[in-house]
């Protein structure tokens, strides 16, 4: 996977397309009734999560299978402080807490690469889940009801805004000095540090940054379900879905996670209610197919069609 470094043309079209697209979908979601409001909410949630994941894992090649931990920590902070501090404060705090957690664990966790890193991030998320579950049950709070949460439309505005911000961050980081350093880390860490790239600092920063928006999303989605349950907000399926969307859409390019989220939600809308078994069978087949035949995802396929073979960027 290559990050496009075509930074000569202005970024205005990409930025405006992202914002206009998001506003249109929000408008459609709200006007077409509550069902579609929820569909739009889910779409933006997955875009924000996958985009944030891509900021770290897509750019550095360290595949995190524990990104739900950020989501869960954000949800937990918002649920615990619900009605004590206002949401406009607790949701950013949830993001901050997730980022802080990532910053603290980054140094030990980022010492390992490849499959070890994948397993470690997965294990870490499970560890946090069970520690919180134990804490909550000890204090007799296995789940918390959150009465008086904002309406779905309000949550949609927040989540859509975060999806736009996450997309723009991935887009701009990809063409920045920071992004180029991360690409060097992905390609060869020893060579990178030998030509002056502060490898550890870049990895830690990207890891922490990629947790902030998922933390805020977690807080918002806890409001959406109107109750907080540790097992639900730390569900590893969320991590798996993020990685699946990134693989199908393609990581390392800001358009990839959008395509991945659209593809998976489209498939779910078509089949979920009518043929749920078929949905999972197809999802599995698509995942295998993409890994084998289109490792750079949908965005890789589009780029390949646009360019004659042999030429690059």
């Amino acid at each position: 996977m290559t990050i496009p470094f075509i930074s000569t043309n202005s970024s205005l079209p990409a930025v405006s397309a992202t914002v206009i697209g998001a506003v249109l979908i929000v408008g459609l979601g709200v006007t077409m009734g509550s069902y579609w409001t929820v569909v739009a909410l889910n779409l933006f949630m997955w875009i924000a999560l996958t985009q944030s994941w891509s900021l770290f894992s897509g750019m550095t090649g360290y595949i995190s299978l524990g990104h739900v931990v950020a989501y869960g920590i954000g949800a937990y902070l918002v649920a615990v402080t619900f009605k004590m501090i206002p949401l406009w404060l607790s949701i950013p705090l949830g993001g901050l807490a997730a980022g802080l957690f990532a910053l603290i664990v980054a140094i030990p966790v980022l010492r390992v690469r490849g499959p070890y890193f994948v397993i470690l991030t997965f294990g870490l998320a499970e560890l946090v889940k069970y520690i919180l579950l134990y804490t909550e049950t000890t204090f007799g709070k296995s789940s918390r009801l959150l009465f008086g949460a904002p309406k779905t439309e309000v949550l949609l505005y927040w989540v859509a805004a975060l999806a736009v911000i996450a997309t723009l961050i991935t887009y701009f980081v990809g063409r920045s000095r920071f992004g180029k350093g991360l690409a060097a880390v992905r390609e060869d860490e020893t060579a990178a540090e030998t030509i002056g790239v502060p490898v550890t600092r870049l990895k830690v920063l990207a890891f922490a940054a990629s947790a902030v928006i998922p933390g805020m999303i977690g807080g918002l989605m806890a409001m959406r379900s109107t109750y907080f349950d540790v097992l639900q907000v730390f569900n590893p399926t969320i991590s798996f879905s993020i990685v699946t969307m990134a693989i199908i859409g393609g990581a390392g390019d800001a358009r990839g996670p959008i395509l991945g989220a659209l593809f998976m939600l489209g498939l779910a809308e078509l089949l979920w209610s009518t043929a749920p078994q078929l949905y999972f069978i197809l999802l599995g087949l698509f995942l295998i197919g993409f890994v084998l035949f289109a490792p750079n995802g949908l965005i890789g396929l589009i780029k390949r069609r646009k360019q004659p073979k042999g030429s690059v960027s």
Binding site: R177, K180, G181, A183, A184, R186, D188, I195
Partner: peptide, 19 residues
């Protein structure tokens, strides 16, 4: 140890930007 997935120019650009 080239950055095999990046272009030749990007390889040198990163050295210029960080070294």
């Amino acid at each position: 140890r080239p950055f095999a997935g990046l272009t030749v120019r990007e390889n040198v650009e990163i050295a210029i930007l960080y070294g």
